[in-house]
Design a protein around this nucleic acid. Structure first.
Lengths: 112, 112
DNA sequence: TCAGGACTTGAAGAAGTGTGCAATTCATGT
DNA sequence: ACATGAATTGCACACTTCTTCAAGTCCTGA
């Protein structure tokens, strides 16, 4: 491979590293959406949405088709849903752990 | 939650969006490693390694302990391995698809 | 208590990203 | 052929993130 695998992985995760792109993928993993639907669901400038869609298109994570005067997007890799679920899992674990830590700290300062 | 969930997710993926951090997590998901072991495995400046370890520490994805004059790191969330596996899966799917596309293109240009 | 190794931190410049405005493309309906 | 609505693209500016060098910190063994 020309690009080392770990670098390809990093680039892949980078494309997920933006709130709008996460929301787009979450919406698209439920069902296909037209751009104006995404626009209504995500509070963002149209041009900014387009930019983020372009990023996702470049990495082949979504594809678009024109349908009756509107552009409809869909996820091209169904496993994206699994990935988002795995992330949710890990994230909730981390957040719970941080919550515990905060509890501990506050009980410490309460105790002494 | 103070930070919207989709933003927390984006930040989470951002921390994965760097080749050195991916390699660190892959190495650590096999077994704990001391910093000098990571250093030997990853071609990178010591200070740069430290920076990346700090990023992973800040997001609670790894923890460090001092052991006999060396600092040993370990992943704090075992599910990280699943996540990396899911990413590998998706990535290989995308790469395979791109390979097919290239095959198609080259056979087209060969044909005409 | 000092020396040395193992790491970490600070900071500055280079490089890469995101945002919003204006201009453009594209396909439809008239 | 043209006007329109729907999306996209080109840019410039602000903001982040990386990388490296220099300067610490923190054990541990002499």
């Amino acid at each position: 491979m020309s690009v080392p695998l770990y670098q390809a992985k990093a680039e892949f995760f980078k494309t997920l590293g933006h709130p709008a792109r996460i929301r787009i993928l979450e919406l698209l993993s439920e069902r296909d959406h037209a751009v104006h639907e995404l626009l209504a669901a995500i509070a963002i400038e149209p041009s900014s949405l387009s930019q983020q869609l372009a990023v996702l298109r470049r990495t082949s994570m979504v594809v678009s088709r024109r349908d009756n005067g509107e552009v409809v997007y869909s996820v091209s890799v169904p496993e994206v849903r699994d990935l988002l679920a795995a992330a949710r899992q890990i994230l909730s674990g981390i957040i719970a752990a941080q919550g515990d830590l905060e509890d501990e700290l506050s009980s410490m300062s309460a105790a002494r």
